[in-house]
Structures are given as structure tokens and as C-alpha cells.
Design a protein around this nucleic acid. Structure first.
Lengths: 116, 116
DNA sequence: AATGTATACATAATTTTCTTATGTATATAA
DNA sequence: TTATATACATAAGAAAATTATGTATACATT
């Protein structure tokens, strides 16, 4: 498990990315999918996930469908049209940010600018 | 410029990494160095940087040296021994986290598990 | 002389976004 | 009946940023 604070700022992008691939998903399914893909290294907590989903819905990026499975109500989320383009945008930005971060993390140790 | 929220959670690691390479740096220099390495894509604000530096010092990861340059006092930060090992640790964790994020961002579109 | 920009530090108010804890409820296995 | 898994939700609190502001020096431009 990673230090929790690394996840900050990336949660919404992760949600949008998963929905853009899977069409529709419900909350618990998202937590399980993330656990699966990351081999348990990222564990989405409900206290982070549900408020994020509600925020994305309130912002018009997601829409919901309720479905009764067994004796329970599941709430499926899927991207709206706006959400779809926003997903592409945010995923692209995150990918670029990742490259930028790598640039920082891999700068050569010591300043070699004086060497010939 | 990236959406600001992406930086969340990575600032301290960036600071520690830069200090582990450059020996010692002062605040303003750190902002300029980040701007340079990232080609302006990441812009550290003072409101984020200085509190982070103070926190790292309070936690014993950084120590300071004041130096008068011209007519101004510069405050140089450098890693303590604890800070040094912590830097390595946090950089490693961030690198792994980056790989995990990439795994999420690059999962194949659509679920192909039914295909032979 | 005044204005703007760069350098250099700092902090306060506010907002965002998490963590942690808690609550409700069904289903199943031990 | 107890624990675990499934499934949702929210409230209290903490952490970490943004935005705004303040101080001060130095230099270039108007």
C-alpha cells in the first residue's frame, strides 16, 4: 500500500478512466477493479470514493442508473457526453504529468554541467 | 500548466529529490529549478513551498543555513541524515506509484476477457 | 521620481480532498 | 452468532494545497 497522500489529485481521473473503459460501473466494483489492476497497491476507501462520485455527478460528468440485484440496490455510474470528453482530457493531462514527474525523479545526481 | 490538484501529495518528494541532488538549495531556487526541469509545466507557489519546507525541517528531514547574499538573507535547506534516507524511500515509492498509475491509465479499452 | 519586474522570505484565510469513523442493510460461510 | 463480503452513505477531522497579502532589496524602464 502506498502512502495515502500520493493518491490525492488522481482519484477523479482514475474513476473517469475506468468508466470510459467499462461503460458503467458501481462504486464497490470500482474499488475492486482498482485493487485488481494495482495488485492491491491502491485501496480506494469509501469515504474518498463516494463523495468523489457524487461530486462528479453534480458536475455533470457522470449519470446514474439504479438497478436491483438480489435484494439490494446497486447504483451504476456512467459517463455523460461532457464526462467523456473530460475523461479524455484529464487522462491525457495525467499521462503528461507522469512524464514530467519522471523527469524530476530521474534527473542525474549532481550537476554535471561543468564536465566536458 | 497542469491542473493544480495533480501536484498534491508529490510536493515533499520533489523537494527531497532536488535537495538530494543539489546538496543545498534555497526556496526561490527550488521554484526556479522545478520550472526549468518541467519546462514551465509545474509552477510551485510560495504558499505551498514554504510551509512544506518548514514542515520538513520541523520533522527533522531538513536543516537550514542562513547566508547573506548582497543585502538579503537567503535560507539554504539541505537534507539531514534522516532526510537523506527518507528521500530515497519516498522517491522509490513515488516511482512505483507512477508505474501503478500508468497501469491504470493504459488498461486496454473494453474488457476482452471473453475473446479467445 | 515612479513603476514594473525579479528576487527572497513569510503567513493568514479559505477551500479542497482526503482519512477515519460510523451507520444501515443484505447475504453467506464458519 | 460471528465474521466476512457486498453495497451504499455521511460526518468529523486533518492535511495540504490555493489565493491573497505583506515585507524587503535590486534593477531596469518610463
Amino acid at each position: 500500500m502506498y502512502s495515502k497522500e500520493l493518491l490525492k489529485g488522481t482519484l477523479k481521473t482514475i474513476i473517469l478512466k475506468l468508466l470510459s473503459e467499462n461503460g458503467r460501473m458501481y462504486g464497490y466494483q470500482i474499488t475492486q477493479k482498482v485493487k485488481e489492476i494495482t495488485e492491491g497497491k491502491i485501496n480506494l476507501t469509501e469515504g474518498a470514493l463516494y463523495p468523489a462520485l457524487h461530486k462528479l455527478e453534480a458536475d455533470g460528468l457522470l449519470m446514474t442508473e439504479k438497478e436491483v440485484v438480489g435484494n439490494r440496490v446497486r447504483k451504476y455510474y456512467k459517463l455523460t457526453q461532457t464526462g467523456n470528453s473530460k475523461a479524455t482530457e484529464m487522462v491525457d493531462e495525467l499521462k503528461q504529468f507522469i512524464e514530467t514527474l519522471k523527469a524530476i525523479m530521474n534527473v542525474a545526481p549532481q550537476n554535471l554541467s561543468w564536465s566536458v
